[in-house]
């Protein structure tokens, strides 16, 4: 959990797993909002709001 990003909802710090990949969902520990990782590079991790669960979602 050495990487970090800031919550675009509340500004809190979100710890990001070392092996994070684009498309993964991370949750802000402060406000509980889910985000999708949109980019990972040397500068850090970018996030965007995650989609809400759809009626047809499942396994």
């Amino acid at each position: 959990m050495s990487k970090k990003t800031s919550c675009i909802e509340c500004g809190g710090d979100i710890g990001v797993p070392e092996d994070v990949v684009v498309g993964e969902i991370i949750t802000c520990p402060d406000c509980g909002t889910d985000f999708e990782v949109s980019n990972v590079d040397a500068k850090g991790v970018s996030i965007k709001p995650a989609e809400t669960v759809g009626e047809d979602w499942g396994e």
Partner: peptide, 29 residues
């Protein structure tokens, strides 16, 4: 092909790489 990377998709990608497969991740969105 995915629209959300769950634990399973990470595990599958890792397993494919370990077996020497080229791994093309496609976000359907």
């Amino acid at each position: 092909i995915y629209d959300r990377i769950r634990w399973e998709e990470k595990a599958l990608a890792t397993a494919a790489e370990a077996k020497g497969l080229e791994n093309n991740r496609i976000d359907v969105k």
